[in-house]
């Protein structure tokens, strides 16, 4: 008995072209009443991009019609077993970007590294993770803020260190 051919996940493959199409249309909207110098290059590139996206959509439609593809986005989330971990890491990353403004580099990096490593490690080796994260965050502080005087986001820890030394 012949094995059924695996259908391609066209839904996930359409995400980038759809994003490109929507962005190009939005871009055109922002330059519609602008002088020609602001339009010429974008219209040239945008028209080619829209054409390419339409060709891709046509190809996908044909594949869907022939039942060679489906509109699922499963490939994007694969492997499913890792989905909670990936969502956890994403939440930690978003939290890091939001909180670093107030928490400063060292403290927020320590919390982020601790949380992210614990999520990825299945909440095992808590002490090792806490110590390793602290060492990495402190090394970053010493190298970038103390040695290079880089203007990383500053928070309570950096302010405390500055007032002591």
């Amino acid at each position: 008995m012949p094995t059924p051919r695996k259908r391609k996940g066209a839904g996930s493959e359409l995400l980038i072209p759809i994003a490109a199409l929507l962005f190009t249309l939005y871009y055109f909207w922002t330059i519609w009443n602008s002088p020609w110098t602001a339009q010429v290059s974008a219209f040239f590139i945008g028209t080619i991009l829209i054409t390419l996206v339409l060709v891709f959509m046509l190809k996908t439609a044909v594949a869907l019609y022939r039942r060679e593809a489906h509109l699922g986005i499963g490939e994007l989330l694969a492997p499913r077993s890792l989905l909670p971990v990936r969502i956890g890491l994403l939440m930690m990353t978003v939290g890091y970007v939001i909180l670093v403004k107030w928490g400063g580099f060292t403290l927020t990096t320590w919390v982020f590294l601790c949380g992210a490593m614990l999520i990825l490690n299945g909440w095992r080796r808590k002490r090792l993770v806490a110590l390793l994260s602290a060492a990495l965050a402190l090394s970053g502080y010493l190298l970038f803020i103390v040695a290079f005087e880089t203007r990383f986001p500053r928070g309570p820890f950096e302010n405390l260190m500055r007032s002591i030394f």
Binding site: L89, M92, T93, V97, F105, T109, A116, L120, G140
Partner: peptide
Amino acid sequence: APLVIAFTLV
């Protein structure tokens, strides 16, 4: 992975 994310984002 967390190390790369933290240090490159900042």
